[in-house]
Each structure stands twice: as C-alpha cells, then as structure tokens.
Design a protein around this nucleic acid. Structure first.
Lengths: 111, 111
DNA sequence: TTAACATATGTATATATGTTCATACGTTTT
DNA sequence: AAAACGTATGAACATATATACATATGTTAA
C-alpha cells in the first residue's frame, strides 16, 4: 500500500463525514439501530434518489453495513470503531462549537 | 446551541480533515511535536501562502494550537482528543483501504 | 530607518461535489 | 404477466473549495 494512496483514502473517509445530509443519516442510524432506505428518507426528509447516492458514499467508505431483506435494503452503522470516532468527534465539536462557527468560511455561507 | 448549528459545526470539523494538504500537515505535526510555518512548508513541500490558509482552517476548527515565538508562529496538535480521533480514523482507513479506493469518485479522479 | 525575514490575507480561477431529474433494475403482489 | 413498490444509477447544473498570485502586516537584524 502506497503512502499517497493511504492519504487519499483518509481524505475520502473524512469527506464522507463532511456533509450535513450524510451526518444526519449516520445519526439517524445511530439512534434507530438499523433502517431501510425509505425510513431514512422519512427521518431526514430527503428524496430517495439523494439518499441512495449518499448511502453509496457511506458504504464505499466503510461507514455503514448493508443487508438485503426482500425488496428492502437495511443499513446500520458499520461497527464500534465508527461509533467511537463519531462520539469523540461529537465531544470535540461541542467543546469547540463557537470557534468553528466563527470561522470565516462558515460565516460567509450564512450571508 | 441550535441542533442545526451543531451539525454545521460537525460538517466543518470533518471538512477540515478532508483535504490531503491539511492531513499531511497534521501528520507532520504529529511526528514532530511542534513546528513553525516555514518548517511545515518544507515538510509538506508547499508554498507559504497555501500553508497559512490551511493553518487558519485548522486553527478555526480546533485541530491545532498556536503559539507565537518572536517572528515565528509555532503550531502543534491541539490535544489528546484530536490525536485519538486521528488514530482511530487511521485504524479504520487501513482496514477499509481497498474499499475506499475502489469508490467510483476516487477512481474517476485518477482517470 | 531600512532591509530582510516570517506569516497572514484578499482575490481570482479551476475543479470537486451535492442535488435534482429521469430512468433502470430487482422484488413482491395481484 | 402486469402493476406496484423499493432501491440504484447516470447526467446536468449550481455551488463550494483548494490553489496560486499579489500584497499586507508584524518582527528582527544591520
């Protein structure tokens, strides 16, 4: 495994986490254990096509499990390691909350 | 603190981590303890202006510490919590390595 | 004070990425 | 078999963002 590729993989892993829709999907899964696509659509109030695109991203980056059940596809958080990463990040963001939101980039988005 | 804002902050935290240049800066800091901007430029082989932009991002998201020392500005990894998040993510990405790189998005970038 | 150095910041641009729309695929039901 | 349902995928577009360039600010040395 080349070092450049490892960095690329890391970049894509964090990219998968850097989207509000995908974050809300992950936190819905964290609350509910496992959900099929249409349930995720309801929980996040988003279109099916959009959710499917995002699930593909989450699947590829190893953030969720897929399990087929008849015509349903059931997703869940991949494993305990992912849960831990989400929890620790949660803790950090809550501590740094104001600083992060006062970031120029964030502020510009609001105007 | 509004829930929407918390999600926005999370998104920006992970966005800060989803860039190869910023990741290489963080891993240089992890190896060397603390470094001034010009040292980071050498270590990452990037322009000073680019590094400064990225340091601003890392600072805002609470990923690094800043300490002024004469005309130098010395940066280091913020705290143990950040180190842990980086380590756990590292572990995950190494496990999921091939899957992540076989992602369509990643593959398209290479062609 | 002037010059040299270290760092930060503003702007422009090219590229990456989230979303929408249309449609395809697979499964169950009637 | 056809219809209905659940999910996935491809293309197009609008927006976000990394980088480069120019320049400003602050600090030390001569």
């Amino acid at each position: 495994m080349l070092n450049g590729d490892l960095t690329t993989a890391k970049k894509h892993f964090f990219s998968a986490l850097s989207d509000e829709t995908r974050l809300s999907i992950l936190y819905a899964l964290k609350e509910n254990g496992s959900m099929c696509v249409s349930d995720i659509c309801k929980a996040t109030v988003k279109d099916q096509s959009l959710i499917s695109h995002h699930m593909s991203c989450l699947r590829n980056c190893g953030l969720v499990n897929t399990e087929k059940n008849g015509k349903f596809v059931v997703y869940s958080i991949k494993n305990e390691l992912i849960s831990q990463i989400l929890d620790l990040s949660d803790r950090h963001v809550k501590e740094m909350f104001e600083g992060i939101l006062s970031c120029d980039v964030v502020k510009n988005k609001r105007s």
